[in-house]
């Protein structure tokens, strides 16, 4: 198989997985672009930021950072805190995001929630190049986000039809991914821990501050459960 055919095959396999993200990022990206637009920034700000940051929630926060007083250290610490969950993703991707040559750098750079979720759970069909599949999923997501943000930044003030509720597409996607993982694994302890601990932390710490406590508590509980979970046989996730 020639290189071109191989690329095409990987692209064809990757694209359907990214369709929900297309809808979600188109909407969220556009919302973000519009937000920047009404905050007084030229369209090339969301363009530049969607390209270089590629982490949705942080980019919304960055708008506020840019509107406030100059405080680079605060910007860095805020980003580290909001994106700390990506540390989890990295630990889970230590094997998958290695051995793909130069693509690894881009894969890790583009490891947003959505790229991680798809690339972790997707079953790559037989005969499809793994590295290119992972690459195209990430690239397409990146492109959708960039496209939405730029479009929102340029035409933001002109859009009027009712899209209320479209942002639920992201929730729906994560519910599906959670279910897929659930159906694949034999032991649901970790899934319960993730849901239960996060919910408790959400109630205890509030919507804005529960991510870090949730992560620490999840780490703690999983560490305590290590012996019984490892004894209970290998999990069927891979």
């Amino acid at each position: 198989m020639g290189k071109g055919a191989q690329l095409k095959k990987a692209f064809k396999a990757a694209f359907p997985h990214t369709i929900p993200i297309f809808a979600g990022f188109w909407f969220l990206g556009m919302t973000y672009g519009i937000y920047m637009n009404v905050s007084g920034f030229s369209f090339w700000y969301p363009m530049l930021m969607s390209l270089t940051i590629f982490a949705g929630s942080v980019e919304f926060v960055a708008v506020n950072l840019l509107l406030g007083a100059f405080n680079p250290l605060q910007a860095l610490v805020m980003t580290l805190m909001i994106n700390a969950r990506h540390l989890f993703y990295g630990i889970s991707m230590l094997d998958r995001y290695r051995g793909n040559g130069w693509k690894d750098i881009y894969l890790i750079f583009g490891m947003c929630d959505e790229s991680f979720s798809i690339n972790y759970t997707a079953e790559i069909p037989e005969g499809v190049d793994r590295g290119w599949f992972l690459f195209f999923v990430t690239l397409l997501n990146h492109f959708y986000w960039f496209f939405g943000a730029t479009f929102g930044g340029i035409f933001g003030s002109l859009i009027h039809f009712n899209m209320e509720g479209l942002d639920f597409v992201m929730t729906a996607m994560f519910v599906v991914i959670f279910l897929e993982q659930w159906l694949k694994e034999k032991n649901h302890a970790s899934a319960f821990v993730g849901l239960g601990v996060s919910l408790l932390c959400r109630i205890a710490f509030g919507a804005e501050d529960f991510i870090i406590p949730s992560m620490l508590a999840i780490l703690g509980v999983l560490t305590l459960l290590r012996k019984p979970l490892e004894k209970g046989g290998e999990k069927a996730c891979e």
Binding site: R85, F88, Y89, I91, S92, L94, D95, D113, S117, Y120, T121, M170, T171, F174, V175, I177, F178, Q181, W182, E185, H188, A189, S190, A191, F192, V193, G194, L195, G196, V197, S198, L199, R202, A207, F210, I211, S214, M215, I218, L219, L222, T223, L225, R226, L229, E230, K235, C237
Partner: peptide, 28 residues
Amino acid sequence: PTPKYIQYLGKTLPSAAFGLLVIYCLKN
């Protein structure tokens, strides 16, 4: 070699992380 504990986390964390993401989406 990646430490055994990190390997264990690599296997168990995703399920928990997806749970966290679902709650995160519904946080408001």
